[in-house]
Design a protein around this nucleic acid. Structure first.
Lengths: 356, 356
DNA sequence: AGTATTATTGAAAGCGCTTACAGCATGAGT
DNA sequence: ACTCATGCTGTAAGCGCTTTCAATAATACT
């Protein structure tokens, strides 16, 4: 427990006042070159580094951003393939701009509790908030944040009134593209499976699904939507059900790659072929989709971009340079077509399996 | 930007002094029931919540723990399957004990730079540090932390002199168990593949590999160890090489499940059977190992326990209740035997595929 | 009744830093 | 020579909270 060096020590060693030393630390103008050098010398000699807490108290700014990661309840680590690139991007963006990141995780059940946010944020330890969620951010949460005067950005979701700045990716359009692709492969009977419909992703995808089918002029009555969990087991179980239906869907859009893998297992087991009898597509472009046989057609959401844009926006707001253009940014997804939805005409897909 | 309520406001509304109000907030004894009630009433009325920054400055404690996540360089999100349960456990443990978590990620290249840690931690914003790494934590890093008087715990790695408290899992023993299992299946020619040997995991596994083979009385000269990356592609490439070798290994231990998946693809492509011709085992028990055909034998490290124990230990140290028993905790891994290493004798493995 | 404890209380001194504000040179403008 | 900017510097007043210490009131003891 060594003696902690304070600005006062620096000032006295440099032979100047506290104020002058402080000015040098903060790079303020109006210090003679001579004194500046003396202070810098003292800082080096004493190995001084400023106490961020004291600075925060004096300035009212903390230089840290809170990232709240809202998760399923109960929390399942498996689903994280999605969040990780976003978090990484947020982290890098925030750090690059010299802010600290304070991360908290909670289930969406906790998050929506009226007492949760105040408890977490009233402490004066953060300047702004990033909310990473797949669920609607409810009105009272937005209201609480606004009441505190805390700038915030929602990533991956939005609030009911679109009052807050949010950045999302276009689930609806992604599914529409998928349907279009599958339609061009000749399919007429579709199914959509996914986790609980409380996630905004799912809601938007259902919308895209329905609207795309309508656009194609296909009858809606025999297009199926089934809900389960977001994992392999659920994909397997839901697919088993779908196989029994008449007419049997020939193209299945899965809410993520895990569901798709489960679905593929169920199809393979029933003796049907992929994609000849049933085409399967996933979502998220995780590594599992590259190790299945056949490889999985999937959707690659712009996760890194999502995180970066959200974080950049918050930082802009914090430094006061926020051009308030659109409050809602919706980024397009990329559809990655592989063998699970397309009858092969050459070896391309086969090769890709080993050098993705 | 509403008027921020301070303790002073509470005190004046309650008609008591600042000191008394503070005592009530902190649950100190020596306040009359009457005054306590008045203060509590005022707090409720004003919706007051204490400013953590000011409190930190006054007490010298911040109530936050820094988690430094050391990663590959460059950072590859794929490998995170490993870290995630640990982080989750750390988070939950820390939160449960009413501490805040501040997370920072960096590459191990950054981490070992002499200036990195001071820059990050000299700010007085954290009380203790958790280092999550797969690489050796070098002497100078330990020295810097000690010089600052900051308690810290290393999770997943250790320092060269075992001076710091660390919690790891037993890679060596895990590989030994794997070899023993494979030996009992009749294998005599082994191979070990993994990522770069700079990770402590790999080093320990090589040790276990060599020592186990010696214990079995098997000749070392034809037992192969190959290094690559930690991903599917690398597993594929390394396995292709191994298949050419004479004698050809009949059992391959892969550094993680992704490598194993790649290896399985290479084997399948060459027309060999798993596990009859070549047995494959992985590491980490990720979801990919459950979707391959055959399903993958793998090692399940006690990740949650690792995170929990490390965090608990740090918290103990911070509150001064640390019983200084062993500085090094090494947890055993669980070997999960599935079809990729064991010729099936019944349907158990088959069934497991759909309800893991 | 008188003294010794004990229980409550508030004034005030920080924690380490920033930032008006005022003071004092110095050089420029008239 | 006198006023006015201008540039640099230090004093001191906080930021919102904790905590020591002395003061006071209440109670116990001889």
């Amino acid at each position: 427990m060594q003696k902690v060096v304070t600005l006062k020590d620096v000032a006295s060693v440099a032979g100047v006042s506290l104020a002058t030393a402080s000015r040098v630390i903060n790079g303020h103008a109006g210090v003679s070159a001579q004194n500046r050098a003396k202070v810098e010398e003292a800082i080096r000699k004493l190995n001084y580094s400023p106490n961020a807490i004291a600075r925060s108290l004096a300035t009212g700014r903390t230089g840290t951003i809170s990232l709240i990661i809202v998760q399923e309840d109960p929390i399942v680590p498996t689903t994280w393939s999605h969040e990780l690139p976003i978090i990484q991007a947020i982290h890098d963006t925030v750090k690059t701009q010299n802010w600290e990141l304070q991360i908290t995780m909670c289930s969406y059940r906790e998050f929506r509790q009226p007492s949760f946010l105040p408890h977490h944020l009233s402490r004066g330890t953060v300047d702004g908030v990033l909310i990473l969620s797949a669920w609607l951010v409810e009105r009272h949460v937005v209201a609480e944040l606004k009441a505190k005067g805390l700038p915030f950005v929602i990533i991956g979701a939005h609030d009911p009134d679109y009052e807050a700045f949010c950045v999302e990716f276009d689930n609806t359009e992604a599914v529409r593209s998928l349907v279009k692709h599958l339609r061009s492969e000749g399919h007429e009977t579709f199914a959509l499976i996914g986790g609980a419909p409380d996630q905004l992703h799912m809601e938007a995808r259902v919308q895209g699904f329905v609207s795309a089918l309508q656009d194609c002029g296909l009858p809606i009555w025999n297009q199926l939507i089934e809900y389960g969990d977001w994992n392999v087991e659920s994909g397997y179980a839901l697919m088993q059900k779908l196989i029994q239906r008449k007419p049997r869907p020939t193209a299945v859009i899965c809410g993520n790659d895990y569901l798709a893998v489960g679905a593929m297992q169920a199809i393979a087991e029933s003796g049907l072929r992929i994609p000849e009898d049933i085409a399967v597509v996933g979502f998220d472009d995780t590594v599992v989709g590259r190790v299945t046989l056949p490889k999985l057609t999937t959707v690659r959401p712009p996760l890194t971009q999502l995180g970066r844009l959200g974080a950049e926006r918050l930082v802009q707001e914090l430094v006061g340079s926020a051009a308030d253009g659109d409050r809602r940014v919706v980024l397009p997804c990329e559809v990655v077509i592989r063998a699970s939805s397309k009858v092969q005409t050459n070896q391309t897909n086969q090769k890709e399996a080993y050098r993705p």
